[in-house]
Design a protein around this nucleic acid. Structure first.
Lengths: 227, 227
DNA sequence: TTTCAATAGATAAAAAAGTATCGATATGTC
DNA sequence: GACATATCGATACTTTTTTATCTATTGAAA
């Protein structure tokens, strides 16, 4: 679907979560010198329905795909990059420089996905002042002013569960508009603040339950792949 | 809904992913001495629709909720525990004792959720032989025999992306039936192997896109909370 | 040049997930 | 003891997401 066909301006959340997968795979294709890609190929590789992939691509591609060859890799990557905001970097702060916080803070891969975690905060005085791969760790007190001064909109919470709500409140007060929450507690936020929870127990529940269901009946024969 | 009303034996995946949230919250209630809980209370706390919560609970609760008071906390926790398999521990191995691997390997919280990561594997000879919080780290070569000997069915992949498929293949060959994949690559597996992907870029895409949409139009007024 | 298989795009159907509504029923209040 | 009300359970409905089907078009091979 090219833009003139009035694509639905509202993107499906599910589409959105698949796009990075497409992007990642197509990037690798490009690195291998491949110049065009079909939805069938993508679907096959990602265990998805080809029609679903086609519809997803239609949402983001600025040009129609060519019958018989598919989509041009270069153009498609540009469109997806644009669409996902991988070009214009979003800046974020992170609170809680524990083990998980460190992983996120020092993971260089986020830059590729348009996220720049500019600094980490922690209440531990022994951590404050240190740097991890060039990322400063500052005391919590400095959070509000930095957020405001830099106009930062995204906050990442990687503190222990029992401190998450308090940190969340401080973030909101400082002006943070979107929170990526790695603590396994629901956060209470004002209506205009966005929260995305990352929770492993939920994922695990799905996996474990399916595995448990498996034993009695051999069931279906298609590979079951969950994102 | 009590069991006699022929509850749909197929559980919604979405229900399954919410159950741990209920469980966690209700556990805290119990710790506070609360003895019964209503779907409205749960819903309010978790930003969900009360009807949705009620339907979820109906799937797992062995007894009907009481009008006016809701569900008995003790019984409900037992039912959920049973349902989610938090009682009977699943054993798992983990491959890739890097930063992420270490978090999972040493996180004591998984035990509460019915997962026991018994050992970590790594190809780095300097890591092998060490222990992390009592969890041994062994060389990859020992993986197949251990998996077979202990009848382990779950494998966790926390290696760099470019090694994930290879590790996956080895796991499958060893007899692993379900894989929890923390690498950001799709895994090719036989049709009878279960894969659950954990991918941060997908989550990020949803968050970032919603945030981007936010700026132009102030839009809705309800808090937007994603799991 | 003609034929043909692969592919996109569009539309329709189905499945999954979530929401609204209503009557029934305990529980506490008057 | 009657009544008001919070809550459940069931049904019906809506929305979202996925899948199926059909047509047109294109590029490559015969």
């Amino acid at each position: 679907m090219s833009k003139q066909n009035t694509p639905s301006l509202v993107v499906m959340k599910s589409t959105l979560s698949r796009l990075p997968l497409y992007y990642s795979y197509i990037s690798r294709l490009q690195a291998d010198g491949v110049e065009s890609v079909s939805s069938a190929l993508l679907a096959g590789h990602l265990n998805l329905n080809p029609v679903l992939v086609r519809k997803d691509l239609a949402q983001v591609s600025s040009v129609a795909g060519h019958p018989r060859t598919g989509f041009e890799v270069k153009q498609l990557l540009e469109d997806m990059s644009e669409y996902l905001g991988y070009n214009k970097m979003d800046e974020a702060i992170l609170v809680g420089v524990g083990s998980m916080g460190r992983i996120l803070l020092t993971n260089t891969k986020f830059a590729k996905f348009g996220l720049n975690i500019v600094v980490g905060f922690d209440k531990d005085p022994y951590l404050c002042g240190l740097q991890l791969d060039g990322k400063h760790i500052l005391p919590m007190e400095k959070m509000p002013s930095l957020v405001q001064r830099m106009g930062i909109r995204i906050g990442i919470i990687t503190v222990p569960d029992d401190q998450a709500q308090s940190v969340c409140d401080q973030m909101v007060k400082a002006g943070i508009q979107a929170i990526w929450n790695f603590a396994f507690v629901p956060l209470k936020v004002p209506e205009d603040v966005l929260v995305k929870n990352e929770n492993l127990p939920s994922s695990l529940a799905v996996l474990a339950h399916k595995l448990a269901m498996r034993s009695p009946l051999p069931k279906e024969l298609n590979p079951i792949i969950e994102n």
